[in-house]
Simulated scan of single mutants.
Amino acid sequence: MVLEPLGKLFNTAAVLSWDASLTLTNTLRWNRKVGQVTPAGCPGAGGKWPEFIPPKEGDSRCSCPALNAMANHGILPRDGKNIKFTEMNQKIRETYNFAASFCYFVPNYAATMLKKDYANDTFDLVDLDLHNGIEHDASLCRQDSALVPDQSKPHAPFIRELLDSASGKDNDGNRLLTIEDLTKYSTKRRVEARETNPDFTLAKVHKTFGSSNSSTLLTIFGGRVDDLETILLEERLPDGWESRILAPMGLTVITFNLTVLRVERGIDEEKFIADREAAGATPKDPAETAAAAETLS
């Protein structure tokens, strides 16, 4: 059985080598033009997204707003079921301008997590919510699964608080989330989830997943509050929207991880607790949190 871990090691090395070459290519070629990021002939080209239809009863959705939005627009199957891993690879690349290496690595990771074959098998979106697979505690958009098992719907209070914390502005005065905003809110969520969820866990790998999700808001979505309000709350791509990544080969793993590392390194739970105590604030009450979760479920 030594061959299986060796095969994974060689596969990862090959993907990272491929990713490095794409990262280099991005530095040597012209960026895509604004308004032409989505490839011609693909859904969303020129900002014209397919009709948005909210999920109906029986449809499969997950804790990822970006994937749910793709199903809501019919870019992925509208019922969110029987999706090929290879299809997700292609559609994510076209929709969000992640690099080809990134778009192979993530679905392949998901297939391995679900003990399925990347090249031949399919999955439903809800399958991705296997707890402590990719889905994890202290999400910025969902309550912990121990409190609300159905992870398909966004938790509006978390999202509102996150977006209200935006401290940046672009040249046109539009409000932007910054790395500092994401680190502060991620810290708050981790501390409060740890205090209110008796089954709370957050291994190092899931901390990385959490900071990766935050980094997607800053990279693909540019941190733009007006867009994120629609994407996170409605799980809909706004009219005229396109990925904020202009790199010709898309956002690579290497480039993306530069943002992920900055977000994760800024998270400081001990400082948050000390500052809260100094301000005379009290921890979240687990009973109140459980009652609120029961009301919303």
Rank of each mutant, 00 (worst) to 15 (best):
T86H: 12
E87F: 08
Q90E: 09
K91V: 01
E94I: 03
N97C: 08
N97D: 13
N97R: 12
F98S: 08
A99H: 10
A100W: 10
S101W: 10
F102C: 03
C103F: 09
Y104S: 05
V106T: 14
P107G: 04
P107F: 06
P107M: 03
N108H: 15
A110L: 14
A111P: 04
T112S: 14
T112Q: 11
M113V: 12
M113P: 05
K115M: 12
K116W: 03
D117C: 00
N120T: 15
D121Q: 02
T122I: 11
T122P: 12
T122Q: 08
F123E: 14
D124M: 13
D124A: 13
L128E: 15
L128N: 13
H131Y: 14
H131E: 15
N132A: 12
G133K: 06
G133V: 02
I134F: 15
E135L: 10
H136C: 08
D137S: 14
A138C: 09
S139V: 08
L140Y: 04
L140K: 09
C141L: 10
C141R: 00
C141Y: 05
Q143Y: 01
S145K: 10
L147F: 07
V148W: 00
V148T: 00
D150R: 02
S152T: 06
P154F: 09
P154W: 09
P154C: 02
A156D: 15
P157D: 08
P157G: 06
P157W: 12
P157H: 05
I159V: 15
I159N: 15
I159L: 14
R160L: 05
L163M: 03
D164Q: 13
S165L: 04
G168R: 00
G168L: 00
K169C: 12
D170V: 08
D172S: 09
G173K: 05
G173F: 00
G173L: 01
L176E: 02
I179N: 07
D181P: 02
D181V: 07
T183F: 01
K184I: 01
Y185E: 11
K188R: 15
R189K: 11
R190T: 10
R190K: 13
E192Y: 13
A193P: 04
R194G: 07
R194T: 11
E195R: 14
E195T: 07
